[in-house]
Write a protein that binds this DNA or RNA. Structure first.
Length: 409
DNA sequence: CGAGATTCATGTGAAGTATACCTTTAGGCTTAA
DNA sequence: AAGCCTAAAGGTATACTTCACATGAATCTCGTA
């Protein structure tokens, strides 16, 4: 019987006309045929990279601008075009794109170079090789063919913050050691002040050229949304005011187009799931909620065990007591939990670092604070909406297999 | 009463350790001539 | 004798620990008005 029911459900699902025409248009990986309101930047980037078509090495380039201002999109778009033309003209060109923020992939010098080398089909073990050796493998791979190579490092500020700028220095000096190939670097950063904190040598060589991506204004976002929505949805699906509201939301903080598109997509998905015929304005508020929630949950899911455990301790501690919470309290609490699940607790030193990292990733909020006679500690608060907390706890408990003891309070 | 010393709890930097993984080398075993 | 496999030796990156020192305002101390 159940089977029949389920079969019917799926049948109905398939029969139901989707609100979407092509959902991928609204996904962040989508590269449109035409990019609006970034003409100036595209032109700049293109003219900087153009020398490749004469087999000359382009200048290193540094791109900065807030999130969702089209930096990544522009680079991908321009490099796609460039690749196309160079293929036609039989110019050997290689463009590597790498996001430095990805944990466990490109967040240290070793891992980044290893990742680059893997682009050339070299197998690099996750650990064990000297970093110099990995550099060598990478050099040789580069030099195998006579090529022009452009390396794009997205969110480069994250990497430098963690591991220092020596890596970039090495990369900028690659050319002097290569015989056949030539390498040019493109760094992308969200942090506008990033270059100023670099070693002057690195600074001057990385930002031979600079391109700034200003935020979109509300009208531009609206325009972009409308054009994409046309491709993404069936006609006459979107109620009036929806696009306007989306763009207003996104423009509210620094004109983030990616956010606006995501908002629209999720709103559409929600509307579809609720069997609505159109996308209503309310759906946007729902979408806003859902996106934020999903983002946080995803982030937490991907944290290492100990990080999760500490976060778990923070949340429970926060719920069971009023007022501010401090490192010492959390550490005690954390140790208790460790005992319960018979896990060896980390030292306070390490926990302190982990708390800073959780702070960096934006799940919690900490500030160091001197309480005079009563020492010095980090005051921690949770920067996640209250409504999401139960879900977080659930995820943490699942992944930690912790039985929550029923605390009455 | 107020300037300077003291104090507390933990932040933070540097150096050391454990673990997991790598390559190289040397020895032992097998095999084929 | 040559070839192949295995285990030991020697090396690295990363996550964590240990040790030691830095911080900075509330509190204390003590000289002065």
């Amino acid at each position: 019987m159940e089977e029949k029911k389920l079969g019917k459900f799926f049948q109905k699902y398939v029969d139901k006309k989707s609100l979407f025409l092509d959902k991928s248009v609204l996904q962040s990986s989508y590269i449109p045929d035409e990019i609006y309101h970034r003409d100036e930047q595209i032109e700049q980037v293109a003219s900087i990279l153009a020398p490749t078509l004469k087999k000359e090495l382009p200048s290193n380039l540094f791109i900065y601008g807030k999130t969702g201002t089209g930096k990544t999109l522009t680079i991908k778009y321009v490099s796609e075009q460039l690749m196309k033309i160079s293929r036609e003209k039989k110019i050997k060109l290689d463009i590597l794109y790498l996001n430095c923020k990805l944990k466990k992939i490109a967040d240290t010098e070793y891992r980044l170079i290893a990742q680059l080398a893997r682009h050339f089909g070299k197998a690099i073990p996750p650990t064990g090789l000297p970093t110099d050796e990995v550099y060598n493998v990478f050099f040789n791979a580069l030099d195998e063919k006579k090529n022009i190579i452009i390396i794009v490092l997205d969110e480069i500020d994250q990497l430098v913050k963690k591991t220092g700028d020596e890596l970039i220095y090495n990369l900028t000096r690659i050319n002097s050691e290569l015989k056949n190939s030539k390498v040019s670097l493109i760094g992308i950063s969200n942090d506008l002040t990033f270059v100023n904190n670099l070693d002057p040598r690195v600074k001057s060589s990385l930002s031979e050229e600079e391109v700034l991506f200003p935020p979109y204004n509300a009208i531009q976002i609206q325009d972009i949304l409308k054009k994409r929505a046309k491709k993404a949805f069936q006609p006459k699906i979107i109620e009036s005011g929806v696009v306007e509201k989306c763009s207003a939301y996104a423009a509210r903080d620094h004109g983030d187009a990616r956010r606006a598109l995501e908002l629209l997509r999720v709103a559409g998905e929600l509307a579809e799931r609720q069997n609505q015929k159109t996308i209503k304005i309310e759906n946007i508020d729902e979408a806003e909620d859902k996106i934020e929630k999903d983002r946080i949950l995803e982030l937490i899911k991907n944290q290492p065990k100990q990080f999760q455990l500490i976060l778990y301790a923070i949340i429970l501690k926060n719920n069971s007591q009023k007022g501010k919470i401090f490192t010492g309290e959390i550490y005690d609490y954390y140790k208790n939990i460790c005992n319960e699940v018979s896990l060896r607790p980390l030292t306070q030193r390490r926990v302190s670092d982990i708390i800073s990292e959780l702070d960096m990733s934006g799940i919690i909020n900490g500030r160091v604070l001197s309480k005079g006679r009563y020492g010095r500690t980090r005051e921690i608060s949770i920067s996640v909406p209250k409504t999401t907390e139960p879900k977080i706890i659930q995820i943490l408990e699942e992944s930690l297999e912790v039985e929550r003891k029923n605390e009455l309070f």
